[in-house]
Amino acid sequence: MKTNNGSSRAYSITSILILIILAILFLFPLYWILTGALKTPAAINSAVPQWWPQEFTLRNFEVLFSKRSAPLFEIGSLTGPIIPGAIRWLINTVFMAVLAMLLTCITASLAGYALAKKRFAGRVILFSLIVAAMALPKQVILIPLIKEMSALGLYDNLWAVILPTVGWPFGVFLMKQFAESIPGEMLEAARIDGAGELRTFITVVYPMIKPGVGALAIFTFISSWNDYFLQLIMLTSSSNLTISLGIATMQAENSTDYGLIMAGAALAAVPIIIVFLIFQKYFTKGITMGAVKG
């Protein structure tokens, strides 16, 4: 028994050491982005890397903000003041991710509740269709989506990225998992009290599935922010780009100015990482619930 304990302690100490080394390796790219963004061109283009920048500079951000410019907003013929392109891309990305998040949460929580608690005809078939769609590769539908968006006049428009995100059935699946746990008696009681359907949803159902909505919100926000492929094929003009797309474009144009590109990468990554860190508890819950087989 004693030897067993000794060897298992040795094992757990080694494991933790390896884990710490791995954690450092996993954090390194992010560290390299953040420090790279603040390094001088000389430090960047030196064969001997500076593990910690010897000299800090904002030059990369200055170049980033002077590279392109775009109006703050365009509504019809009304255009806002001219601002750096990278800021406009950031605004576009926030707009896109927030709307995708709101619409997904509203539609998915309504639908998830219906699938979990309403005994309507065709419910099983519909749910099977949703699960089947989830198992298919999402990117396969992108080519037909282009034609569809062009036909709707939405090509090169942020809505062309928002609408397919809302349509993706993962959210409905997740919300159904959460709505299953609502006791039928509570819904029954609300009905006896004479509450209408929508009222029941808002006063009884919504408070119960709130953690699920939180999980879905943060999940949709992050995945929509980072859905590069969809953004790449739908958005083309400089003032409509998202931040990821803008950085990718800059990378193609100035592929050797790593300082500039790291500044862009930092601008794209830092906001979403902060959002993730604030809401990561919900996030973990969402990932776990989404995996439970229904």
Partner: peptide, 20 residues
Amino acid sequence: GYLFLLPSLVFFLAFVVYPM
């Protein structure tokens, strides 16, 4: 049931099922 599903279904059919 259908009314609750409707908004989600519109997006799902239009932007997932139809392109598939």
